[in-house]
Simulated scan of single mutants.
Amino acid sequence: MADVRVTYDQKANAAYVYFADPQARTQVARMYPCDPVEVGGMINLDFDESGCLIGIEVLAASSKLPQHLLDMAERLDMESS
């Protein structure tokens, strides 16, 4: 099973699922927003220059993603010591 990086900011209630290596600094060339009315929140699909899906941004993440995924996500809202 491939490793997928997931980040989560609980204060913003936003998550990002990376399909491209985040260290590669792949640029988003095109963002396709899903209809917020249809999905009950904003979900954005990010594509690179070749049209490959590189990540998914999920707003209102706590109501859209499974809790176990949010629990294992890298937290962006916690202050580092």
Rank of each mutant, 00 (worst) to 15 (best):
V17H: 01
Q27L: 15
P22W: 02
D35I: 13
K11G: 00
Y16A: 08
V6W: 04
R5Y: 05
V39L: 12
I43G: 09
Q27R: 15
T7K: 05
G40T: 11
Y18R: 03
T7E: 10
V6C: 06
D35A: 11
I43Y: 07
D21M: 06
R25G: 14
A29P: 07
P33K: 07
M42W: 05
A12P: 10
K11A: 02
C34F: 12
V37R: 10
Y32C: 05
M31L: 10
Q27Y: 00
D9A: 03
T7D: 12
K11Y: 00
Y32W: 03
E38Q: 14
M31W: 00
M42Y: 06
E38V: 12
T7F: 06
A15C: 03
Y18N: 05
R5M: 13
V17Y: 01
D35G: 13
K11P: 00
G41Q: 09
A12D: 09
A14F: 07
T26K: 13
R30E: 15
Y8S: 01
C34D: 01
Q23D: 08
F19V: 04
R30Q: 14
D35S: 14
G41Y: 11
R30T: 09
R5D: 10
T7M: 08
N13Y: 02
R5W: 02
K11R: 00
G40F: 13
P36I: 12
R25P: 05
P36V: 13
V4H: 06
A24L: 06
F19Y: 10
Y8P: 05
V17L: 13
V39P: 01
V37L: 12
A14H: 08
A15S: 10
